[in-house]
């Protein structure tokens, strides 16, 4: 009788010890995925604003290609998606056209466009986050800033990418009208940088693969890829987004990202 009791006490102790150890030892894949995402965001916080000169190289399946040049201004926002201003420089007939985008995690973005030939700012109201950016293989949602609340996460496995140890995490978009059912992201363990993303379409087929190249370190803290390469796995078209020049903390503030400044940008 007393022996039975002591066995019960011991096993009770073991069970409670196990229960205590569990959150540390056996974190669920969802929790681990979320933690990786939080760390990824944390490491990228505080860059403030940036100015970039960039080219987009669009290619058809048969290998024709064309380059479009633009400047991209970005402003980091706390508790919301970042603000972005894109000024088109080439081709010549769209020079000076400017596109202002307030990205939001789970609502449609706010978008305005200034057409110099019309001398008017037009607000575009649409649900086109999933639509292509300027005819490229990038969708708006691929280019907007990474926000933790945009997705639900699930850690899948460890892997190596570009000979770096990395996590492989599945992200499920929270935005109702996203073009994707899921994304698989490779994030290196050292700096928490995304190196490769696979996008899966509404029917669950692999749609596109994005790879990041030529990472450079800015302000001793922020890693940025100088080349983003998006390949459409279904129609074989591809787009490279190449950053030629990038500066941080250039003194931009919210006043540089509103409708009235749109028409003044050159």
């Amino acid at each position: 009788m007393s022996r039975m009791q002591s066995i019960r006490q011991v096993s009770g102790l073991i069970i409670s010890l196990l229960l205590l150890a569990l959150p540390v030892q056996a974190q669920s894949p969802e929790q681990k995925g979320l933690e990786i995402a939080k760390e990824r965001k944390a490491r990228d916080r505080g860059w403030g604003d940036s100015r970039a000169e960039a080219s987009m190289i669009l290619r058809t399946a048969s290998g024709q290609q064309i380059e479009r040049k633009m400047r991209m201004l970005s402003l980091e926002m706390q508790d919301d998606g970042d603000k972005g201003l894109t000024i088109f420089d080439q081709p010549a007939d769209v020079k000076g056209t400017a596109f202002l985008n307030y990205s939001h995690a789970i609502e449609p973005d706010d978008q305005w466009m200034y057409l110099p030939a019309l001398k008017r700012v037009k607000r575009i109201s649409s649900r086109n986050k999933s639509g292509p950016f300027m005819g490229s293989e990038f969708a708006f949602e691929d280019l907007s800033s990474f926000e933790v609340e945009k997705y639900r996460y699930k850690y899948l496995r460890d892997d190596k990418i570009n000979s770096l140890n990395s996590f492989v995490v599945e992200q499920t978009p929270a935005y109702e009208h996203s073009g994707y059912t899921k994304m698989i992201v490779w994030i290196d363990k050292e700096h928490y940088r995304a190196h490769k993303i696979e996008y899966y379409d509404r029917k669950g087929s692999l749609l596109k693969t994005l790879t990041m190249h030529d990472f450079e370190l800015y302000l001793d803290k922020y890693w940025r890829p100088m080349k983003l390469s998006m390949v459409n796995n279904q129609n074989r078209k591809s787009t490279d987004l190449i950053t030629h020049e990038l500066q941080f903390r250039t003194g931009l503030d919210e006043n540089d990202f509103n409708q009235s400044t749109l028409r003044r940008v050159r």
Binding site: T60, F88, P91, D93, V94, T97, F99, Q111, M113, L115, P116, A117, L118, K122, I124, S126, R127, N128, S130, G131, P132, F133, M134, G135, A139, G179
Partner: peptide, 24 residues
């Protein structure tokens, strides 16, 4: 009535297209 205006309309249109559609 001008090339610039046409080009900019086209850019605006490209920017507003939904998933799966492009000008191509």
């Amino acid at each position: 009535d001008s090339q610039e205006l046409a080009a900019q309309y086209l850019l605006l249109y490209e920017m507003s297209l939904p998933y799966g559609l492009d000008l191509n």
